[in-house]
Amino acid sequence: MSSRIRFAALAALCLATFPGCQQSQQKLSKEVPTLVNGAPITRTEVDRAAKALLSQSKMAQPVAPQVLEKAAQSAVDQLIAAELLYQAGSKIEVPDLERQVRDRIAQSRARYRSQAEYDKALGSAGMSQKEVEVAVRKDIVINNLIRTRFLPSASVSEEEIGKFYRENRDTAFRLGERVRVSQILVPVPEQASPALKKQARQKAQALLKRVQNGEEFAAVASLESAPPTNKNGGDMGILGRGEAVASFEKAAFALKPGEVSGLVETPVGLHIIKMMQKLPAATARLDEARGQIALYLQQAKVRKAVTQYAAELRAKAKVERI
């Protein structure tokens, strides 16, 4: 469950429109089928939002016309709610808003290896850099509204936590087979030259040999593994199925306690894995699940309150539609 509290309609925020700085000049048209207190919601946004909803629901292709129509209606409703929340949130000062916008965009940009790859991703989403900036700004403003207006009153009691655990213990809190492993990582960037890849493999093989010859795994990991995997002697903690890339998971779960793998290749580099402990399937105890339950229940309360607030805003708003 995500630690960020968001209203369900915010899934459509990446499709947000420009702020209505010229709202009085906006008129309904085929390209702008909806106005929310004068702020436009465009046909492009609606189509993009509907496509995102269909993608999330994993609908079989081709999609029936009536399903497309229903998705478009849901998209419009989400975009209207998001716009109303943004308008309400804009009345609350957000400290360092523009800096937050720049930082968020920089974090997103950092996930791509180059500007060209980032631009390609924007093109695939049908968005310009300006539209990204507006979407991020709206996201921050709305989350600030939620954080200041709704989060403080969404407290969760121990009784609520215990009741939820008892009612869902046998379904939501079943833990599959898990392993506790340590690793030594030699990073290999995907764009590395053949010479650099060869050098990295030679280093990884040398480190593996040191461990095989009896050198303490944790000591080698602390000295040689790439940050932050060198912390705590390379200890990764407990991993369940599906929490690591396929090649790493396959190698890790195949080991016996105390056993060390050969070189394991993943998109981030070459790994040497040591099995520290195998844990059988079990049910999480209440004390283990308490934090997760509290967060989930808090988010549920916030979502309910925000949904009701958005409905109240819509009842008072001027929503014009073709």
Results as ranks from 00 to 15, higher is better:
247 S>T: 15
268 V>G: 04
22 Q>N: 09
157 S>V: 03
69 E>L: 14
12 A>L: 14
228 P>T: 02
154 A>M: 07
224 E>N: 05
157 S>M: 05
236 M>H: 10
136 V>E: 06
108 S>I: 14
247 S>F: 04
141 V>T: 12
291 G>D: 04
28 L>D: 03
50 A>G: 10
262 G>Q: 10
105 I>N: 00
5 I>T: 09
199 Q>W: 01
160 E>P: 14
38 G>P: 15
78 Q>A: 15
21 C>A: 07
269 G>M: 03
314 R>H: 12
211 V>P: 04
171 T>N: 11
100 Q>W: 07
87 Q>N: 12
155 S>Y: 09
32 V>N: 12
30 K>M: 09
129 Q>V: 06
4 R>V: 15
215 E>W: 03
73 Q>L: 15
78 Q>Y: 14
85 L>T: 04
139 D>I: 12
155 S>A: 07
60 A>T: 06
162 G>K: 10
276 M>P: 05
104 R>A: 12
255 L>I: 14
262 G>V: 00
194 P>Q: 09
215 E>Q: 13
4 R>G: 08
55 S>L: 14
214 G>W: 06
238 I>T: 05
262 G>S: 08
159 E>Y: 08
236 M>I: 11
138 K>L: 05
297 L>N: 00
322 I>G: 11
94 V>F: 00
81 A>K: 02
16 A>G: 09
105 I>F: 05
242 G>L: 01
122 L>K: 06
227 P>D: 02
33 P>T: 01
310 A>G: 14
205 Q>N: 13
188 V>R: 08
280 P>F: 01
143 N>W: 04
140 I>L: 11
23 Q>P: 08
91 K>G: 07
35 L>C: 09
209 K>Q: 14
148 T>G: 01
46 V>W: 01
191 Q>N: 11
95 P>A: 09
166 R>A: 09
57 S>R: 15
128 S>A: 09
268 V>R: 14
95 P>S: 15
34 T>Y: 10
12 A>I: 07
244 A>F: 02
115 Q>K: 08
64 A>M: 15
13 L>Q: 12
75 A>M: 12
151 L>Y: 00
33 P>D: 02
114 S>V: 03
88 A>D: 02
29 S>W: 01
268 V>Y: 05
105 I>T: 04
65 P>D: 10
237 G>L: 05
287 D>Y: 12
136 V>P: 07
168 N>W: 06
123 G>L: 13
32 V>C: 02
263 L>A: 03
112 Y>R: 07
262 G>K: 05
3 S>Q: 13
100 Q>D: 01
225 S>D: 03
281 A>G: 04
